[in-house]
Structures are given as C-alpha cells and as structure tokens.
C-alpha cells in the first residue's frame, strides 16, 4: 500500500481525502500548512503528497518546490480550489506531478493518483 501525506488547512477536506484514500493507501500524516508538510515529508518520505495550495504560514507551491528540490523522486499532486492558469504553471515549475481542482469526485482523485503512482 502506498504511503500518503495529506496537506490541507481545511479539516473538512482532510476528512474527505482520508475517506477516499484510506481504502488503498496508508495515510502517514495530515498537516495544515506548508511548513508542516515539508517536515513530515522529511520524517516519513511518503510515496505521495496530496498538497493544497492556499494554506496559512507557507503555501503549497513553496512547499512542493522545497520537497521536490531535495527529493526529485517525490510525487506531489496539487489538490486545490485554485483554477488559475498562472498558478498551474507555477505548480509545474515547482515540480508538481499532477493537479486536481476542487470540488472533485472520487474517481477523478483515484485516476490522478493512478497517473502519478501507478499501482
């Protein structure tokens, strides 16, 4: 079972993602901002990070940038309500491997993960 880290400041969204993922994934952490995401990533080196963009303290794009520059093999999927082209390009530049826009349905999450971390 692949390990997943969930980074989202919304409790509601973390719960929703956990419900979708826990069947086929090992959830190694749930964090609320970009700083915690980087820390927990270092400790756990999960197979996948589901990363929100708009978070307090440090946003998801900066966190992705740091994670990917230290671990080019890390897999990060942005999971965000932001649907702006410029932001998507920034995410690509930071090294994001996929991009899911909220609101999402379960199949699209599974599909996006399958693209990035084939089972």
């Amino acid at each position: 079972m692949p390990d997943v880290l969930i980074a989202d400041d919304s409790e509601f969204m973390r719960n929703l993602l956990r419900e979708i993922l826990e069947e086929d994934h090992q959830i190694v952490g749930e964090v609320e901002n970009g700083v915690e995401a980087v820390e927990v990533f270092k400790e756990e080196t999960p197979d996948l990070v589901m990363m929100d963009i708009v978070m307090p303290i440090r946003d998801g794009i900066e966190a992705t940038d740091e994670i990917k520059s230290n671990n080019p093999d890390a897999n990060v999927i942005m999971c965000t309500s932001v649907g702006q082209e410029e932001k998507m390009k920034e995410a690509v530049k930071a090294g994001a491997d996929g991009y899911i826009t909220k609101p999402f349905q379960k199949p699209s999450v599974i599909e996006a993960i399958e693209d990035v971390v084939p089972s």
Binding site: S10, E11, F12, M13, V54, T80, V82, K102
Partner: peptide, 11 residues
C-alpha cells in the same frame, strides 16, 4: 462552510 467558501471564492 469554510471549505465551501474557499471553493466558491476560487470559482
């Protein structure tokens, strides 16, 4: 509501 507001804002 917090998450819904977030998503509506982005939309």
């Amino acid at each position: 509501i917090e998450e819904l507001g977030n998503i509506m804002t982005s939309g």
